[in-house]
Computed example of a mutant assay.
Amino acid sequence: MYFVFDIDGTISFDGKTISEEIQQAIVLLMEVGHDIVFASARPIRDLLPILPEAFQRCQLIGGNGALMWGHDGVEAIYFEQALREKLCQIVEQYQLSYLADSDWDFAYTGDKAHPIYNRIHHQGAKNVKLNELPQMCKLVLFDVSKEALDELTKLSVTISQYASENIVDISPLGIHKARDLQGDFIAFGNDMNDRTLFEAAQHSVCVGDGEVAKFASRVITKKEVARTIRQFANHRGMDK
């Protein structure tokens, strides 16, 4: 069995750290023979710093499925050029602020006080202009108007909305966290971008009672995360 963990709002609640208690619970899963996957909206660049070194050797899925961390570094799925041009036209037409990611470099014009900016780790990455980004695998837009959103929904892309942060997250069509996961797994998540994980999982745990909770097998509070993980390690998780 393997376990798939979202990061922000699921096992990290400040955007910077994972508590020692939760870390130890995940290590316990590993010690009893389970495989661990971390699947996040974060690009790999921003996923690595929040994970202890032992967890960095696990399978890492970033950019809601557009990025993978492998032996040869970051593997990415990009928007096709014509689609990228249409996205850039909408950004320009509606004067939208954004965070665009390539496999490592990025382009950011949003408010530096926004929580998403605090999760960006430069680590040798450059903040460049949108038209200077070699390729684009993920686009986050801030304060999107209804008119702009209507235009975006006409495109062949995957769109996730995060009302709490007032952002729209755009990935290539068909890209989601569960796309490369095979076999039985147990998923932990908290937001709508975890829906595909919940629907594909043998068992799913939602942290908090957000909109995605209706797709989960079980709903817990953030205070129950470490205990719930330990229950699975002790073969009692699905019975509680």
Score class of each variant (00 low, 15 high):
Trp104Pro: 05
Gln161Trp: 01
Ser160Arg: 06
Asp101Met: 12
Lys177Trp: 04
Asn127Ile: 06
Ser156Met: 09
Asp180Cys: 01
Tyr98Gln: 01
Ser171Gln: 10
Ser160Met: 05
Asn127Gly: 02
Tyr117Ser: 05
Ala100Ser: 08
Ser171Cys: 10
Glu147Arg: 15
Asp101Cys: 15
His176Gly: 00
Thr109Ser: 15
Asp105Thr: 01
Ala125Ile: 09
Phe106Ala: 02
Leu99Cys: 07
Ala82His: 13
Thr153Trp: 13
Asp101Glu: 15
Lys146Leu: 12
Val168Ile: 14
Tyr94Thr: 02
Leu83Phe: 10
Leu152Asp: 00
Glu132Asp: 15
Ser102Cys: 12
Gly110Asn: 04
Pro115Val: 12
Leu181Pro: 04
Arg84Phe: 04
Met136Glu: 00
Ser164Tyr: 14
Lys177Thr: 01
Gly110Trp: 06
Val157Gly: 08
Pro172Gln: 06
Tyr78Arg: 07
Glu80Thr: 11
Gln93Asn: 12
Asp72Arg: 15
Leu83Ser: 04
Ser102Pro: 04
Gln89Ile: 02
Glu75Ser: 14
Tyr162His: 15
Gly110Arg: 11
Lys146Tyr: 07
Asp111Trp: 05
Ser145Met: 06
Thr158Pro: 04
Gly110Thr: 01
Leu152Cys: 01
Gln95Ser: 13
Gln93Tyr: 10
Tyr98Arg: 03
Ala125Lys: 12
Gly174Phe: 12
Lys154Val: 02
Val144Met: 07
Asn118Glu: 10
Ser160Ile: 03
